[in-house]
Simulated scan of single mutants.
Amino acid sequence: MDNPSKIVEGGVTYSLGRFDGCCVHYDFSKILVYLEAKGKLLFGSHFELFKKDRKILLQLCSYMIRDATTCAKYDIDINKGILLSGPVGCGKTSLMKLLRHLDPQRRFYEMIPCRNVSFGFNHIGYKTIEDYGNSGYYCFDDLGVELPGRFYGKDCNVMGEVLLSRYERHNLSKGTFKTHATTNLNAEELESRYGIRVRSRMKEMFNLIAFQKHTGDKRK
């Protein structure tokens, strides 16, 4: 029987905790060792996890492994998606790309830049909203900085419409249809960009996990 507490990367076996034959008892310190190694494979040898981000990492990892006790401590609902916010360059996109590898037995969410969704609308119209709004397991990257959509002379707040469609599916699915996103915007800026109705739905769809606003740009 496969041991789900172990992951092999580059010929090296990493332990994430202890498997008792029924479930995995995760060890956060071992998870961090694996994530840093996987990050170097994905993004290059310069990749590192920072001590100042440990609280964010603990929350995200606890959500990904469905650690109900730790999630409850941080008021994280495992039936909602993740909205990861923070300043430009703080590592949001890299973390969401990385964390989907934490449990290879579950289906990966696909990372979709929001600008691509808007560009798609400009080319093929409302089918883009249907495609991204009604199906798929996605993390929408850089929510709020995409350009407005326009198709045959009609303007559309494309991601706002996608989120409304996914909210309806989220409600019908009772938490099995999840959406994740990253954003540089705060709550007020999201409301200004998408309107109060979408902002209200986002509160029901997402757990907000936020970097400190003064977090530095790690790409420098």
Rank of each mutant, 00 (worst) to 15 (best):
I56F: 15
I112K: 09
S94C: 11
L42F: 03
V162L: 14
D53F: 02
L95F: 11
G153L: 04
R219W: 15
I65N: 12
E9R: 13
P113E: 13
V117Q: 01
A72R: 12
Y34E: 00
L163M: 15
C139I: 12
T183L: 15
S29E: 11
I196L: 12
E146F: 06
G153H: 06
F211M: 02
Y34I: 01
R106M: 08
R197S: 09
L164P: 03
K73Q: 15
T93D: 05
Y109G: 01
K203W: 00
K178F: 05
C22I: 07
I124D: 07
S200Q: 00
F50L: 11
G81L: 15
V88R: 03
N134F: 10
S165L: 13
F140D: 00
K92T: 05
I124Q: 13
Y194D: 06
V88D: 00
G136F: 03
S15V: 08
R219C: 10
D53T: 03
N207D: 03
V145E: 06
F211E: 08
F206C: 03
L41V: 10
R115T: 08
G175R: 04
T176Q: 09
L185N: 05
N134Y: 09
Y152V: 00
H25T: 15
G125H: 07
L164F: 02
G195W: 11
C22S: 10
Y194H: 05
L98H: 14
G153K: 00
Q212A: 13
T13I: 08
D217K: 07
Y138H: 06
V117M: 04
M202G: 05
A187S: 09
G17A: 08
E191S: 11
L102I: 02
Y14C: 07
G195C: 12
A187P: 08
S45I: 04
E130H: 12
A210N: 00
T215D: 01
D142A: 13
C114N: 04
E9S: 13
C139G: 14
S62V: 02
C114K: 00
F43Q: 03
V145T: 12
R150C: 13
R18W: 10
L163C: 01
K213P: 01
S85A: 09
F206K: 05
I76H: 12
E36C: 01
S5Q: 05
N186F: 03
P148R: 06
T13D: 02
G120E: 15
M205D: 00
T128P: 00
L98R: 05
G89W: 03
T70M: 09
G21I: 09
P87Y: 10
G149C: 06
K40D: 04
D142W: 14
S135L: 06
I82C: 09
L143G: 10
C22P: 04
A181V: 04
I196P: 14
R100I: 11
K40P: 01
